[in-house]
Computed example of a mutant assay.
Amino acid sequence: MTIELSLDRTATLAQTVHIQSHTLVSDISKAEGGDDTGPSPHDLYDAALGACKALTVMWYARKKGIPVDDIHTRIERDATEERKGIYRLRATLSVQGRLTDAQLQELQAVAQKCPVHKLMSTVTTEITTTLGRLP
């Protein structure tokens, strides 16, 4: 899959992000020199974790017949030591439904195994960057 980005000409630095049939904007805050027209790349990174955990729990609950009626996910970031190589994310998931304590524990274990959590914590990501001229 390819994700394409282009300069959003209505803002100073913002990027229009095209992912399959979806379009969104990413920007940086006004304090950082942007226009704050969309979530920052860090926000998107953090949101990917939250979305993955929620989607994984909901998918699993439906597959196993666990009665989850609603889910709310909160991601808290502590980037105070990012330059030292430590980036902390705290994910809190709250579910609604008639669940037993055993089902809650089962869903907790599933949330820990979402694919983005694994990517962020156990996989080595190799990135190749090239820069060229536009025609």
Rank of each mutant, 00 (worst) to 15 (best):
Y60F: 12
M58I: 07
I71G: 05
L93M: 09
T56W: 10
L55G: 08
L44T: 11
D70F: 11
K84N: 15
P39V: 09
G85D: 03
E76N: 06
A79N: 13
R83K: 15
I66G: 01
V57H: 01
R74A: 13
I71W: 03
A48N: 08
A109K: 09
L107S: 03
P39K: 06
L49F: 08
H72I: 10
R88Q: 14
A51Y: 11
L93W: 02
M58H: 00
Y87D: 09
D46Q: 10
V95P: 05
Q105L: 13
D101L: 14
R74P: 06
V68R: 01
R74M: 12
G65L: 04
E81W: 14
A51N: 13
T37S: 10
I66Y: 00
L104I: 11
H72V: 12
M58W: 02
P39M: 14
L93N: 02
Y45P: 00
I86R: 15
C52N: 05
D70S: 14
V68L: 00
K84W: 13
D78W: 09
L89R: 07
R90M: 09
D101K: 15
H72T: 12
Q105I: 02
D46P: 04
A79M: 03
S94E: 15
H42T: 13
E81H: 15
Q103K: 04
T37V: 09
L89G: 06
P39G: 14
G38P: 08
A61D: 00
Y45G: 02
E76D: 13
K63A: 02
D43L: 07
D69V: 03
L55D: 06
P67R: 00
R77L: 07
G85A: 05
H72A: 12
E76L: 11
A48S: 15
L49A: 08
G50W: 04
I66S: 01
Q103C: 03
T80Y: 03
K84D: 15
I75N: 06
L93K: 03
R98L: 10
L44Q: 11
A51W: 11
G85I: 08
I66W: 00
